[in-house]
Amino acid sequence: MRPPELVCPAGTPAAMRTAVEAGADAVYCGFQNATNARNFPGLNFTPGELERAIRHAHENGTKVLLAINTFPPAGKVDLWRDAVDLGARLGVDAYIVADIGVADYIARNHPDIRLHLSVQAAASSPEAIKWYCREFGVKRVVLPRILTVSEIKAIAREIPCEIETFIFGNHGLMVEGRCSLTNYITGQSTNYDGVCSPAADVEYRRDEEGNLSTRLGDFTIDCFSCNETAGYPTICKGRYLTPARNEGYYAFEEPISLNLSSLLPDLMAAGVNALKIEGRQRSRAYVKNVVSSFRKAVDAIMAGEEPPLADLIALTEGQKQTEGAFKSKTWR
């Protein structure tokens, strides 16, 4: 078995250095604009920062993958093309893309740089993945988080490219790359603007008793009583009142994080080439803890040992974790 690549998040230069030190084989990051799906205020890299960060990562044997994983709206394609060209000049090792127009631009203009298909492209069948490989020379697909390990194994046998799967982090999957919930409320699009639940539209209110309500725009999306754990202010994790239910109801998904620690050996045996940790919006402390835990686990499996399962529950959303669809289609 070849060792899988541990692909780790970097929202800032300091987070990238932390990931490199903690044992990342590759880090992924984005520019400070709508070309990536974590276009959060104060996050991401200026060109100068990315240039220095790439130098540091390469000196330490770590690859840098540039996320250009949103969809350019008509008339704004230049921003995406410029990001691609800048990435090439700075020496990125691969692009992570979702849009076929961006993939086509890269395939024609930067054919020597690896192309990875983002989870946002939601390619989940061998036929879809083979089409991307044939048309754009995609070298790796990041699979949507809707497949069981045995389905991943079956896909691995049929496709001509590498497979990357998420192993830890935010579990807001919906129909990946096609979610319009935030657009409905805020007018900003996750897929075009790169931001779900823009912070400027989020408001937390704490009442006298310590209950916390979360609002997005004009909508209350949850209310946590004082001793309840909280989740991200995303609509997919909201708890709603409906006439059909007696109490608040998670209509889409619960505040919960994916944690596949215990499925790592199965994923590696299934032919997964790269293991991805979500969380570019998280802190250096998160990056250090999660990356070093999975580094130890992967190394132990490669050495034929029982992987140590670190307790990462404190870092999970709502302090709850799941193996999601990877274990069973009935997770919700």
Binding site: C226, R282, S283, Y286
Partner: peptide
């Protein structure tokens, strides 16, 4: 040493 999101989740 601490993650702001985690502290937010734990209230």
């Amino acid at each position: 040493d601490a993650d702001g999101d985690a502290l937010f989740f734990s209230r």
